[in-house]
Each structure stands twice: as structure tokens, then as C-alpha cells.
Amino acid sequence: MSEILNANPTIRNASDLPSRRPDSTIPTSSSGASQRYPPLGLFASTIPASAYLPDPFATATPSSPTSSISEEDSAPEPIDAQEIYDLIAPIADPEHPLTLGSLSVVNLPDIFLEPLSPGSPLTVLTVLITPTITHCSLATVIGLGVRVRLEQALPPRFRVDVRIKEGTHSTAEQVNRQLGDKERVAAALENGTLMGVLRKMLQGAEGGETAL
């Protein structure tokens, strides 16, 4: 590996990175279930689960053999920008033992999701990445890592466009063209050495235990 290009990038502290926070509103529309409410935060440990869980026999009634999939259970949670961010932020930078999130290479405001055309089942996901320095030769590898992680983690209805953010890289145009070429990406994935590098980068994302 060439000498470290950017010896000291500014590193953002983990607690400043955007994350999903559970909301505290009561599930108002708890239909019909007895007025028991799910656990009371800190006090959940002292108020055992049985205070609100249905009685094991309740499912025995022959009328509803399959347990009533409670309404809370089936409320769909659409894939949003935060979920995309959580997928790519923990990817490890090829050079530093840090993550793309803490190096601000990927940022929540640079993730865009919109349907290909009104009513189309396809969704175009655009991710803009900001290399730590303007002449970073690893921008392509980082872009490839982000694209491979998203293509492996998202359903096929997504069209993933990973591009370098405007004006943040000297050869942005060539890198974008490479990252956009589906055929070259497919060929790259069959190249053993490159896959090794990518797998190391993604190890962080899967295991999630890189040094934040």
C-alpha cells in the first residue's frame, strides 16, 4: 500500500453520527388488546413481561390457530436514507482502521432515494461519496466497496448509482463513469485480489465491530 495518503483526516466522534432513535409515543391504535402497554423503558426490568404478554393459552382457541400477527408486527417500515446510511457507514476505509462514517466519506444528506418514474416499482438510489482528499487514488475502491455492499444488501428493485460528490475530487468524472459501468463492476468482482480488499473493507460493515 502506498504511503498513507492522508495521514490525519478529521475524525468525527461516534456520538455525532446520525442514528435511529426509538420514539416515545404510545402505540395509540393498539386495537382491542387489553390496555396493557409494552415495557416502560428503564422499568421494564422491574415490571416483568407477563404483565403485558398475552396468556400462552389464548392462542389455543381453535378459531385462530395461527397466532394473531399483532397489528404492530405487520406495520411495514420502508427502506429509508437512514437505513442506507447504517449499511454503508460502518464500511472500513482501506487505509485507516476507521469507518467511512467517522471519516465523513459517506453522509446522511448525500443519500437520495426516488422512484425511477412515478408509479414505477424501480427505485433509484444515489449515494454521493466525499473522498478525504481531492486526489485520493482509493476513491474508486471506496466507491466500489459502497456499491458492492448496497447491491448485496438491497433487493433487486433498487438501481444503485454511487458517484463522487461534485467538486470534491480531481478525477471525479472518470471515477463516476467506472462506478456506473455495470459490466466493469461485475468483472471487478471476479478479480481475486480486488475482492480480497473489498471483503476486508466490508468485514467492518458485517461484523460491525470496527473501531468507531
Partner: peptide, 11 residues
Amino acid sequence: PNHRDFLITLE
């Protein structure tokens, strides 16, 4: 009626 901010205070 619909929120549990009191929970943060009590905790």
C-alpha cells in the same frame, strides 16, 4: 393521552 415524556423524567 398520547405521549410518555413523563417516562424520561421518572427514569
